[in-house]
């Protein structure tokens, strides 16, 4: 069953087609990869799904409901959470309050504040930030700020999570920790769409991958199919050596 579906999704920036007539369908429970060169329209597609921008034409459906034209907070409350390519934490709020905000406003369930506080601690524990829960968010390392964004997104109780380059700028150890985190999120039954340039991660985690180039979809398939596609190698992967992983 498809949880998220896009038909002819299009967005222009001035005369430039940032995303052009893209169709996609994401199955419930899978990890779906989104790759392509810089400026291919990957983040723009995330911004269209989460309603940061309005779409120019096309339809996006979440759980068979048309969500095009809804406000970002409504989409979040329906169960679509996201992280940001350039981290957008609340710098002067404690780490704990960053997560608590998601529980207060991302949910419509009538939890008591004690329940929310203990859930917030659970999410912090899940991403491994219990030690720094009272520190201002700006004092965290980049890797931890990215984890905090994940915790905040999880706190809104999503069924679909959009991860935008959560591994960019991390060292190899942090990358493998992040991969392990993504796998644990999937085990919770949350569907994931991830944008990533770290091929090792994309190829290992995702069941299906979509490749964008100049705003258009040029390929879609299993990691093996993508790794061997001539077209993808030419515009993005660049050399055969990469494709063997």
């Amino acid at each position: 069953m498809s949880i998220l579906e896009g038909k002819g999704v299009t967005k222009y920036f001035g005369g430039l087609a940032a995303v052009s007539n893209v169709d996609f369908s994401v199955e419930k429970g899978e990890a779906f990869g989104l790759i392509g060169p810089n400026g291919a329209g990957k983040t723009t597609l995330f911004n269209l799904i989460s309603a940061a921008y309005p779409v120019k034409s096309g339809i996006i459906r979440f759980k068979d409901k048309d969500i095009t034209g809804l406000k970002p907070y409504k989409i979040c409350r329906m169960g679509v959470a996201r992280t940001f390519q350039i981290v957008k934490i609340f710098p002067d709020l404690p780490v704990f309050s960053n997560v608590l905000l998601g529980l207060h406003f991302g949910h419509s369930s009538g939890m008591s504040s004690a329940e929310k506080a203990s859930l917030a601690l659970e999410y912090l524990d899940f991403v491994g930030l219990t030690q720094v829960k009272m520190a201002p968010a700006k004092d965290l390392t980049l890797a931890n700020q990215k984890r905090l964004e994940v915790a905040r997104a999880l706190a809104t109780g999503p069924e679909l999570l959009l991860l935008d380059e959560i591994m960019a700028g991390l060292n190899p150890t942090e990358v493998s920790q992040a991969m392990e985190l993504v796998n644990r999120i999937r085990e919770k039954g949350i569907t994931i769409i991830m944008i990533e340039h770290v091929m090792k991660a994309i190829m290992n985690i995702c069941q299906r991958i979509m490749v964008l180039h100049h705003g258009e979809k040029i390929a879609e398939g299993s990691p093996r199919e993508i790794a061997n596609s001539e077209k993808v190698i030419k515009v993005y992967l660049g050399e055969k050596a990469h494709a063997t992983c």
């Binding site: 406000k71 934490i89 609340f90 905000l101 207060h104 949910h107 809104t156």
Partner: peptide, 20 residues
């Protein structure tokens, strides 16, 4: 809390469910 989150990072607040 929502007001402070808006003051610090409004986009993130909106995508965390706050009707900004």
């Amino acid at each position: 809390l929502a007001l402070r989150s808006i003051g610090q990072e409004e986009d993130a607040a909106a995508h965390t469910g706050v009707n900004v």
